[in-house]
Design a protein around this nucleic acid. Structure first.
Length: 508
RNA sequence: GGCCCCUUCGUCUAAGGGUUAGGACGCGGCCCUUUCACGGCUGAAAUACGGGUUCGAAUCCCGUAGGGGUCACCA
């Protein structure tokens, strides 16, 4: 469980559980028979974001699917921060991602692994490959390679490393020249991946060039780092965006060169914006935090993201428990889906209505306080709690909820909005006068009693209830829409209600 | 451009050889109603196109078109 972030940020040993696993392969390689039969039921997944920005929608869904798959199988869901790109990785991004995951209610087993701390192990594997003849030193300079690609492009040939150092003797290189380590990949035949989502996908080995494992400065590339980390962490199922599908073939080549167990792959389609293109900055609010700030409930987001690209018959409202029970990779669609804010809002409305009143009071309070410019007293909070049942059924998100509650806390005399002001013409004010009179005489301030009084007036004046309710609403709430008018009366109490009515009558 | 993937209402999806192609969001109408919501009923709305295979195709095969992804000493 990842709850207290300080736990690992301030800790000196970031991945204690991990270090124990460090030499596990050597042991398990030697004991083949103990390794083989058991490995089927232990599911280990991982979510591996690179901390270069907030947790975007696509990442959130990938995280969810990994989490759900692990929980469904009673396995482990691990978290790894891919922070090897020091120039782009920031602590703010790490925090934002962890917060986003936490907000969504996703917890992780073991301590998060920071990839940057594992560079030595990555290098070790690269050198192991070098020693076994599965990799070689490449002395080509960046300039040289750029030139090579330029030429390939000019000749309209595929842009790939041409293997110029593959069979050359390192002694041909200048004395002490820096070199990168490249994987010696297969040149003939093809590889096929039995992807749980995409099905069988094959690629000719000739398409896969000898990619770099270790840079000339000794740092590992992403391709090396992922494979080594996934292996060391014991990851059995790789669920990630299908933008990694092409990488999978390279990674598989590396895995096979090391003789490691091959994971099960599941490449899920990316989420697209309204225009069908890959989600990017220009699509507007994208971080999970942005939706939190829009007053979306985590459960609604969870449900929405779950149903995006995944289905379970006609089910729409799905609880976490059901999601864990039902989730299967087979249900994931193969085509990219578009993000639909309207549906999210609708789902959020469902979860608002279902939510616990006390919880909603907590969640809405910050917005209310911001609007009011003061903090809520205990009495205010209690009033809000009383009003919650009639407020929450009308709100699609926490912002609407907060807005709709403001009339409870506003000080007299109320400032009416334009529509409410227009509604209060002379006739309406005359009506308010008789309403005020009748309510003033009422001692039994209950829903039933107030309703009886108002209905009596409506009847004697031969008017519909609406003719009375709307002016009352305007005077009592300053707006033309609110909870039921008798609810409003009761929530406000007799004194406040009469005061607000009087304020508007006196204006004439 | 090379390689890989995708294609059912506007959107998310169900239907894995035989259904009036179902549900949800959104949109329209009606009902409920003191406003606004909720809710109920209801309407319009889809198998990208073209060929096969088959008694029968949204479903299997081929092609076309469109869309997406990926091609770094980034991750």
């Amino acid at each position: 469980m990842v709850r207290n972030r300080c736990l690992w940020r301030s800790s000196g040993s970031l991945y204690p559980a991990f270090q124990k696993n460090y030499h596990r392969d050597k042991a398990s390689v030697n004991s083949k028979d103990t390794e083989q039969p058991k490995q089927t039921n232990a599911v280990v997944t991982r979510f591996a974001p690179s901390p270069t920005g907030f947790l975007h929608i696509g990442g959130a869904r990938t995280a969810m699917f990994n989490w759900l798959f692990a929980r469904h199988h009673g396995g482990k869901a691990l978290l790894r921060i891919e922070d090897t790109d020091k120039a782009r990785s920031t602590q703010e991004a790490i925090d934002a991602i962890l917060e986003g995951l936490d907000w969504l209610g996703l917890d992780w087993d073991d301590e998060p692994v920071f990839q940057s701390a594992r560079a030595d192990r990555h290098a070790e594997v690269a050198h192991q490959l070098l020693a076994s003849g599965n990799a070689y030193k490449c002395f080509a300079t960046s300039e040289e390679l750029t030139a090579m690609r330029e030429q390939q492009r000019a000749e309209k040939k595929p842009m790939r490393y041409d293997g110029r150092w593959r069979d050359r003797d390192p002694s041909e290189a200048p004395e002490g020249a820096p070199y990168a380590i490249r994987l010696k990949t297969e040149t003939a035949g093809k590889v096929t991946i039995a992807d749980k989502v995409q099905g069988d996908v094959s690629v000719q080995n000739s398409e896969i060039d000898d990619f770099i494992l270790l840079r000339s400065d000794g740092s590992p590339t992403y391709m090396l780092a992922v494979v080594v980390d996934d292996h060391d962490m014991g990851v059995t199922h790789l669920i990630r965006g299908d933008d990694h599908l092409n990488n999978a073939f390279r990674q598989l080549a590396l895995i096979r060169a090391m003789g490691w167990a091959e994971p099960v792959y599941a490449h899920i389609p990316l989420i697209h914006g309204n225009d069908g293109a890959k989600l990017s900055k220009r699509h507007g609010a994208l971080g999970v935090d942005a939706y939190r700030d829009m007053g979306i409930l985590p459960d609604a987001m969870f449900n929405y993201l779950l149903r995006l690209g995944w289905g379970h018959g006609d089910d729409e409202i799905i609880s976490r428990e059901q999601a864990i029970q039902w989730f299967a990779l087979e249900g994931v669609g193969k085509s990219p889906s578009r993000f639909d804010t309207k549906k999210l809002q609708n789902l959020n409305g469902h979860y608002m209505r279902d939510a616990d009143d006390a919880a909603l009071v907590q969640l809405a309070t910050p917005w209310i306080e911001k609007d009011l410019g003061r903090s809520l007293s205990d009495a205010d909070s209690q009033l809000l709690g009383q009003a919650m049942p009639v407020l929450k059924s009308r709100a699609k998100n926490l912002i609407e909820l907060a807005d709709s509650s403001l009339f409870l806390f506003k000080k007299r005399p109320l400032v009416l909005d334009e529509r409410a002001e227009n509604l209060l013409d002379d006739d309406a004010r005359t009506l308010l006068k008789s309403i005020h009179l009748a309510l003033n005489d009422l001692d039994d301030w209950t829903l039933e009693a107030t309703e009886e009084v108002i209905k009596a007036i409506a009847e004697s004046a031969e008017l519909g209830l609406g003719k009375l309710a709307q002016p009352m609403r305007a005077a009592l709430t300053g707006s033309t829409s609110s909870p039921g008018i008798f609810d409003v009366l009761i929530l406000l109490g007799k004194e406040e209600s009469l005061g607000r009515l009087a304020d508007q009558i006196e204006k004439t």
